[in-house]
C-alpha cells in the first residue's frame, strides 16, 4: 500500500516540532530554516497549516530537471533528489506549483521531502496527530467522515 502524508490544519497548534524533527533527521541538528516541512500561520495564529511536498505522480520538478537528478522511489512514491546529479540550477524550484522543493545555499543543491525512507519523522514528532502517514488512496476519508457526520446531525435535528 502506498502511503502519503496527510495534514490536518485544524489539529495543528503551531509548535514546530515537525520542523525540528525534519531538520534533525536530514541535517543532524535543529535547523528549521532547512526543514522540508513548514508550518504557516494565519490571522494571529488562528490557524497553523503544515505544508510539504505532496509527491505528485506526474512530478513537475522531475520533468523540469535537466540532469535527471530527481527519481521515483517506486515503493514509497517519493521523489528523491540525487545529490551527485543535482547541479543547483533551481529549474525544479520554478517548476513546482507548491514551492515545496527548495534550494539550499549551503550545499548548493535542492532539498525536498523524501518521506524519511518510509518513516516520516514529522509524523512521529507531531504531538496532536495533525500530520499522519496514511493510505494514499484514502487520505481524504477523515474529512469526508466529518462532513458525513455533519449531514447526519442535520438530518436528525
Amino acid at each position: 500500500m502506498q502511503r502519503s502524508l496527510h495534514m490536518e490544519p485544524s489539529l495543528c497548534t503551531g509548535c514546530l516540532q515537525c520542523e525540528m524533527a525534519c531538520s534533525f533527521e536530514h541535517e543532524g541538528e535543529f535547523i528549521p530554516a532547512r526543514s522540508r516541512i513548514r508550518v504557516f500561520e494565519f490571522e494571529h495564529g488562528r490557524t497553523s497549516v503544515p505544508y510539504t511536498c505532496t509527491q505528485c505522480v506526474e512530478a513537475w520538478c522531475m520533468k523540469a530537471c535537466p540532469t535527471n537528478a530527481i527519481s521515483i522511489d517506486s515503493d514509497l512514491g517519493a521523489k528523491l533528489v540525487s545529490a551527485q546529479a543535482c547541479v543547483g540550477c533551481k529549474a525544479c524550484v520554478s517548476a513546482c506549483p507548491f514551492g515545496t522543493i527548495e534550494f539550499n545555499p549551503f550545499s548548493g543543491k535542492v532539498d525536498k521531502c523524501d518521506l524519511c525512507g518510509g518513516d516520516p519523522q514529522c509524523v512521529a514528532a507531531c504531538p496532536t496527530d495533525a500530520i499522519t502517514y496514511v493510505d494514499a488512496g484514502a487520505s481524504g476519508v477523515g474529512r469526508m467522515a466529518s462532513a458525513a457526520k455533519q449531514s447526519h446531525h442535520e438530518a436528525v435535528s
Partner: peptide, 10 residues
Amino acid sequence: LTNKACFGCT
C-alpha cells in the same frame, strides 16, 4: 477559537 503553542511546546 482554538489553543495555540509557543515554539516547541507540546
